[in-house]
Design a protein around this nucleic acid. Structure first.
Length: 320
DNA sequence: TTCTAAATAT
DNA sequence: TATATTTAGA
């Protein structure tokens, strides 16, 4: 009896995992998957990254990274290649530089840092869904970023809505109540400029987000929507006449009234005006790109359509 | 279950 | 203090 007990104990003890096999109490706050996703390097660990996780859209992340790494006049440049490595690690302290090879299951979810790249993805998702349908779960699914939770998105959405609300106030009342309603979304002159504001400003807020009755307009132009290079020819993807054209205007969120249409970034203008403004952006004749972030301009310049024309892809990183 | 606003934690 | 997470009520 007693001998059996001691045998059992010895056996049990023998089967205990070695210290190397034990999951450390302190773990990295950024999961390997997330680290891969956002190209976060841990200075403490020389580990190289593993191949990207299956669900992660690595191409899009890479695109985003490239855009962020090249110097831009845009304010987003200050976020630069720092893709969240700053704040993320501090919380748990105890920097146990665990050289884990297998995905470390974090005991507590790491504090997510919303980088401009991640936020842009968020905005793209919201824009794609339309404000009406943009709820955390759907947004999360559309973003398809490994490790991103519904709670993360819900929290961010909460802040983003507050931001939009504030921007609406600025655009409607606070800003002298301009009549054309095409002011690019930004904080210039508002006096509000927190880090969060800069983050939100780093991705363009589609103009129709700020319309009180935004659901009158269909969501965002689909990914496939492209505008040809203005210098050569601007052909918004509107074809046809009469009801057909109107339908398309509605579909793309454009207002067909008075021959003007609603550009997601530039607001309501005649096509001619938009041609000029976009053209100026491309050729560096304006600095703020009328609300379009530099990454978009860069995409505009780099993208080339099959027919050789340069194109502006409204969803440079989008899927569809 | 999920969303949202508010409270709480870091 | 700013921002992310958690909680609680709908």
């Amino acid at each position: 009896m007693r001998e059996e007990d001691s045998n059992w104990f010895a056996k049990w003890e023998d089967e205990l995992p070695s210290p190397e096999e034990l999951m450390p109490l302190s773990q990295t706050l950024i999961t390997p998957d997330l680290a891969i996703a956002f190209d976060i390097r841990n200075p403490n660990s020389p580990n190289q990254f593993h191949p990207p996780p299956p669900t992660l859209n690595q191409n899009q992340i890479n695109n985003v990274n490239t855009a962020a790494n090249s110097p831009q006049p845009n304010s987003s440049a200050e976020f630069d290649s720092d893709l969240g490595g700053t704040g993320g690690n501090g919380a748990a302290g105890s920097g146990c530089g665990s050289g884990l090879d297998e995905p470390a299951r974090t005991l507590k979810r790491p504090r997510l840092v919303w980088t401009p790249q991640l936020h842009k993805r968020f905005v793209d998702a919201v824009a794609h869904l339309g404000i009406k349908n943009a709820v955390p779960k759907t947004i999360m699914q559309l973003m398809s970023v490994d490790g991103l939770t519904r709670e993360n998105v819900a929290s961010h959405l909460q802040k983003y809505r507050l931001y939009l609300k504030r921007m609406q106030g600025i655009n409607n009342g606070g800003n002298g109540g301009g009549g054309n309603g095409n002011s690019p979304v930004g904080l210039s002159g508002s006096g509000v400029d927190t880090a969060m504001d800069r983050l939100f400003a780093s991705a363009p807020v589609p103009a129709h987000f700020l319309r009180p009755n935004a659901d009158h307009f269909m969501p965002y132009p689909p990914v496939s929507m492209q505008v040809h290079h203005p210098q050569i020819a601007v052909q918004p993807p509107m074809v046809g006449h009469g009801p057909q054209l109107q339908q398309q205007f509605r579909h793309f969120g454009h207002s067909p009234t008075n021959g003007q249409f609603e550009h997601p970034f530039l607001g309501r203008q005649s096509q001619q005006q938009q041609v000029q403004r976009i053209g100026a952006s491309i050729h560096g004749n304006d600095n703020d790109h009328h609300g379009m972030p530099a990454s978009y301009v860069e995409d505009m310049e780099s993208a080339t359509a099959a027919n050789g024309r340069k194109v502006l892809t409204l969803f440079p990183n989008g899927e569809d």
